[in-house]
């Protein structure tokens, strides 16, 4: 395994996440896309840490991101629940109150 292959995996994963965010209407699916992107970033962190910088900082950062992603998912899911309670849907297109 070299750095290149890891970066390709990371980029593929990022693209999957971006695709999910752009195409999915369901908020949960979008959230999943976000999680994919975060994890793509994690792979980059770890890969660069291991091959390039040779310090532990990148891997620690990845752990932080995993924790934050968990918290984010929790907050996001709570929002979706409230959204579903008020509007009866979790479609992201319905939530366009910020439209100018």
């Amino acid at each position: 395994m070299g750095l290149d292959k890891l970066l390709v995996i990371s980029a593929a994963l990022f693209c999957c996440g971006l695709y999910a965010i752009l195409t999915r209407r369901n908020a949960v699916a979008v959230l999943m896309g976000v999680e994919l992107i975060l994890n793509a970033a994690n792979i980059n962190f770890v890969a660069f840490s291991f091959y390039v910088s040779r310090v532990i900082g990148g891997q620690i950062f990845a752990v932080f991101v995993i924790v934050l992603a968990a918290a984010e998912a929790a907050v996001a899911l709570a929002i979706f629940l409230r959204m579903y309670a008020t509007t009866g849907t979790v479609e992201v297109d319905a939530a366009d109150h910020l439209k100018g």
């Binding site: 971006l18 965010i21 752009l22 979008v30 992201v92 297109d93 939530a95 366009d96 109150h97 910020l98 439209k99 100018g100």
Partner: peptide, 12 residues
Amino acid sequence: RRFQTGKLHHYV
């Protein structure tokens, strides 16, 4: 403001 659709997809 026409660009401010409020739609997540647009933004992304």
